[in-house]
Computed example of a mutant assay.
Amino acid sequence: MILAYIGISVLWIFLFCYIIIASIDFGAGFFTLHAKITKQDKKINHLIARYLNPVWEVTNVFFVFFFVGMVGFFPDTAMYFGTVLLLPASIALILLSIRGAFYAFENYGPDTKLVWLAMYGIAGLLIPASLATTLTISEGGYITGTEKHLDLNWTELLLSPYSWSVVFLAIISVLYISSGFLTYYASKAKDKPAYNLLRYWFLIWGPPMIAISLFVFLSLRLQNEAHFLNAVSNYWWMFLLSFICFIGAMLLTIMKRAHGYAFVLVILQMGFAFYGYGASKLPYLLYPFIRIDEHIVNSSMAIALIIVFILGLLLLIPSLILLLRLFVFDKKYVEGKK
Results as ranks from 00 to 15, higher is better:
A101M: 10
Y103P: 02
F215Q: 08
K332D: 14
W236G: 15
S233F: 09
W12H: 03
F217K: 02
G312N: 10
K331F: 14
G82R: 05
D151S: 14
F31R: 00
K337H: 11
E335H: 15
G7N: 03
M1P: 13
N45A: 06
I171H: 00
I20Y: 01
G312H: 07
P110K: 13
V10P: 06
I48A: 08
W236K: 14
V174W: 00
Y162N: 05
P207R: 06
E294V: 00
G145V: 10
F263G: 00
A186R: 07
F239C: 12
Y275E: 05
L313P: 04
F102H: 12
F272Y: 11
G124I: 01
W12V: 09
G278K: 15
T253C: 08
V115P: 06
F329T: 02
Y18V: 01
G276P: 10
L251W: 09
P208R: 02
T59V: 15
V115Y: 14
G29S: 01
F309G: 14
I6M: 03
W116Q: 07
A123M: 01
A231F: 12
F16L: 04
F272D: 01
L95H: 04
I143Y: 13
D41G: 03
E335M: 14
T77M: 04
M301H: 12
A273E: 01
A92Y: 04
L282Y: 11
A28G: 07
R50W: 14
Q269M: 10
S97M: 13
A170S: 11
S219Y: 06
G276Q: 09
T38V: 05
V68T: 13
F74G: 02
G278P: 10
S163F: 07
I310C: 08
L285T: 08
E156N: 07
A226K: 14
F26E: 00
F65I: 09
H46S: 07
V166M: 12
F274H: 04
F81D: 10
G121V: 04
M79G: 14
R221L: 07
S319M: 06
I212M: 01
L322E: 15
T183W: 03
G180K: 00
I303P: 07
F65Q: 13
N230V: 00
V58R: 08
L96P: 07
L214D: 15
L86R: 03
L203D: 11
T133P: 08
I292L: 07
